[in-house]
Amino acid sequence: MTHTILGANGTIATELIPVLKKHNVNIRLVSRTPQHVEGTESITADALDSEQLLSAILGSDVVYLTIGLVYNAKIWEEQWPVIMRNVINACKTTGAKLVFFDNIYMYGKVDGIITEETPYNYISKKGKVRAELAKMLLKEMASGNIEATIARAADFFGPRATEKSIPSVLVFEKLKAGSTAQWLINPNVPRSLNYTPDIAEALYILATNEKAFGQVWHLPTPAPLTGKEFVKLAAKHLKSSDKISVLPKWLLKIIGLLNPFMKEAYEMNYQNEFPLHLSSAKFEKAFAFKPTSYEDAVKETALWHLNR
């Protein structure tokens, strides 16, 4: 079996590689600038180029789409539909199964628990793009043109998750440096976060179970906890103060005038202002999988940061 990762330099790919090694599959890493990883094959390809992508996927049994584009709505609007169409066409041509690692932006602000049946009600430009990608792939899946599955997660944290993880930047790195942890907008509301090792294990499970295909799955997510509770756990394992500096919405808008990433992130702030409860009950029941507790996940992440 050959398992191919598109977006091979990203956080999720980094966690997925050791999972695939553990299961003794052939691993192919595809990126515009792939890094050599012992025990894997690396191929240079741009997912925006259909011929390059097809050539990179040839011979694959499973393809993981874990590409992360620059966090910019205009770039997403221009490039994501092209990438998704190219990936779908390449998998249809080669017969490779597709596992699409997705986020939850298409749901928008939800009052209550978010399940796989929650309707799309995006309130952001990036959410609109994600909804369109999902609809494109779901249409192909429903038509029987491709064996694919969509795997969704909220914001994530974990060992080896660094600048792409807000909890890593604002909590773990701050506490390790002896600074005060920061939290966005509201540390008093419950907030679902995903643990990257659980994400990687779950992606492999979906890729290797026939019943997973043709469906949407929420990746393993424990019951949400508040920002204060999360920081308290991190501080315990980093032996730091659990004080929190809250970054209010008005300040984030000002920061966005100077910081392009924060400007782009502003439309997603509803995720930090209001409760966000993502349910993975469907996945847990189907595959008898228990998400890693926040206690254990935060402990492992804290230890990794301490030992860097």
Rank of each mutant, 00 (worst) to 15 (best):
G108W: 14
T115Y: 10
T149G: 08
F101V: 15
V110W: 00
F157M: 00
L137N: 02
A131I: 06
F156E: 00
Y120P: 02
T118D: 05
L138D: 03
S165N: 04
A151M: 06
P159L: 08
Y107L: 03
A151D: 04
Y122W: 13
I150V: 14
M136W: 05
S124G: 04
Y105L: 12
A142I: 01
Y120I: 09
K128I: 07
L138W: 02
I146V: 14
G127N: 02
F101L: 15
F156R: 01
D155C: 00
Y120K: 12
D102F: 03
I166P: 02
A151P: 06
D102H: 15
G144H: 14
K97M: 10
S168Q: 01
K128M: 05
D111F: 05
A154G: 11
T118L: 01
A154Q: 10
E163Y: 13
V129L: 08
M106G: 12
M136L: 11
F101R: 05
D155N: 10
A131R: 15
Y122G: 01
V99C: 06
P119R: 07
M141P: 06
G144P: 14
T149C: 14
P159V: 05
L133E: 11
I123F: 03
F157N: 00
T115A: 10
T118Y: 01
R152G: 05
K135D: 14
V129H: 00
D155F: 02
R160Q: 13
R160L: 14
A142M: 13
A131M: 15
G127A: 07
E147Y: 07
Y122R: 01
S168T: 07
I150W: 10
S165C: 03
K125N: 13
E147T: 08
R160F: 15
Y122T: 10
R130S: 08
E117T: 13
Y122I: 03
A154C: 08
A151Q: 03
D111K: 11
N145G: 15
M106C: 13
I123R: 01
G144I: 12
K139G: 08
A161R: 06
K125S: 10
E140L: 03
M106K: 11
S143C: 05
I146F: 10
E140R: 03
A161E: 07
